[in-house]
Amino acid sequence: MRNYNLTEDVFVNPGNMGCPGCGATIAMNLALKALGEKTIVTIPACCWAVIAGPYPMTTLKVPILHTVFASAAVTASGIRAALEYQGDNETTVMAWAGDGGTFDIGIQSLSGAAERNDDIIFVCYDNEAYMNTGVQKSSSTPYGTNTTTSPGTGWKKTRKKKIMEIMAAHRIPYAATANIAYPQDLINKFEKAKSIKGTKFIHIYASCPTGWKIPSEISVKIARMATKCNFFPLYEVEDGIHYQLNHVGDQSVREYYKMQGRFKHLSDDDIDKIQNYIDSDFEVLLGRL
């Protein structure tokens, strides 16, 4: 057992509605361990709106304001403004959205908050599709994926949107990627985000056994492989320009793709093409360091 120096406090109660192996649930627990009790969370429509529990129960140890699908960021901005009006500059306000609530329907409100540099942490837990509604394609879904709206030979032929670059282009003080398989790194990033004023963006890779068609017991392993093959590199961007890479992967993407049901239709040629995409993306990232 590795010791991550984590608090014993439980922020995500057991018995919640997360699926077995749900990466998003692991992510929340780690994030709140880092942020602590003085945190208010706002959650738009997404799997987490379910995991957080139906009335009259709640999964979290901190207050939650559920909001509409498009509005996670600005709801957090409104909470922040109210706390500031009340003289509270200490409480952390965190918006916690899925990839749909970040890359797609939520991007307008996220961009607005980032441009205003509102003092919030916006977290995207990325499971690469609309999972809550039954695994439909999002603009975070990677090239080559079968989803229920990109089925069969209609698998997704466009690439995953580069949300980190979009956020960096807003020149927010802090943006970082994180991965449930790298808990210490994830926690460090939340602690850092908490200490910075302004808009912080954390993009967490959060595997989804149900949607990715993988056994739940390899959920964390798959997430780790995504970083080890540079499919999901771990890095930070400060003020939109200062890049820092936290991990260099050295494995090919083949095994990562081969282990997941959502990619099982891909040919070796397809995977070679994907390897090229990932290599060139990683080159671009290295070029920014």
Binding site: I40, V74, S77, R80, A82, L83, Q108
Partner: peptide, 16 residues
């Protein structure tokens, strides 16, 4: 950045 957000912002503020 929109009226959708205008109302969401004050839903947040009023809830706080």
């Amino acid at each position: 950045e929109s009226e959708h957000s205008a109302m969401a912002a004050i839903v947040g503020a009023s809830s706080a």
